[in-house]
């Protein structure tokens, strides 16, 4: 990650799906494998110009959050000792969001190949549904039950142990 030749780029411009521009320094951008790949490709070509990376799937609201995460993690990238502090920050970071935002963030993390954020979101969502009843999950996530009562009873029967 620490490739800092004289011709290398120091920052890139990222464009959200709603056409907002974000100036991101390279270390922060490198938290996303997608952005890192773009930067690496450009550096290989020897470009000195600032590059523009359009992200057609990520709105500026969500991109702001992903970049906030990347910035924090870039700060901690060289510091192994503060893992606990970073974990705490991660948790506080996600706690603020509703499920719709979490879903969008999950999608964006997947699209931008920010694996740690993707896993963090998935773990967070999983933890929050683990102890809920079926009814609660359906309600919170707006999942329409499209089984007939008979089908539902059959599934429960076949998986009796899972629904104890």
């Amino acid at each position: 990650m620490a490739s800092s030749s004289s011709s290398s780029l120091s920052r890139v411009v990222v464009k959200s799906s709603d056409n907002n521009l974000f100036v991101v320094n390279k270390k922060v951008a490198s938290q996303s494998q997608l952005l890192k790949q773009c930067i690496d490709n450009m550096e290989e070509k020897g470009t000195n110009d600032v590059i523009l990376i359009p992200l057609s799937n990520v709105t500026s609201n969500i991109l702001t959050l992903v970049l906030e995460y990347c910035e924090k993690h870039a700060d901690f990238a060289d510091d192994d000792n503060n893992n606990q502090e970073l974990k705490q920050w991660d948790h506080e970071f996600l706690k603020k969001f509703d499920y719709a935002t979490l879903n969008s963030l999950t999608m964006a993390a997947d699209y931008m190949v920010t694996k740690s954020l993707l896993n963090l979101c998935c773990q967070f969502i999983a933890d929050s549904i683990k102890d809920l009843t079926v009814q609660q999950i359906r309600q919170i996530f707006d999942i329409k039950n499209d089984f007939t009562p008979q089908e539902e009873a059959d599934i429960k029967n076949e998986n009796a142990w899972a629904f104890r």
Binding site: I125, A126, I129, R138, A162
Partner: peptide
């Protein structure tokens, strides 16, 4: 599916009741 992989297997199987 990735989200489900963070759940205990039994809870993940139980999500089959949510919808088709």
């Amino acid at each position: 599916c990735h989200i489900l992989s963070f759940l205990p297997t039994r809870c993940a199987v139980a999500t089959s009741i949510l919808s088709k």
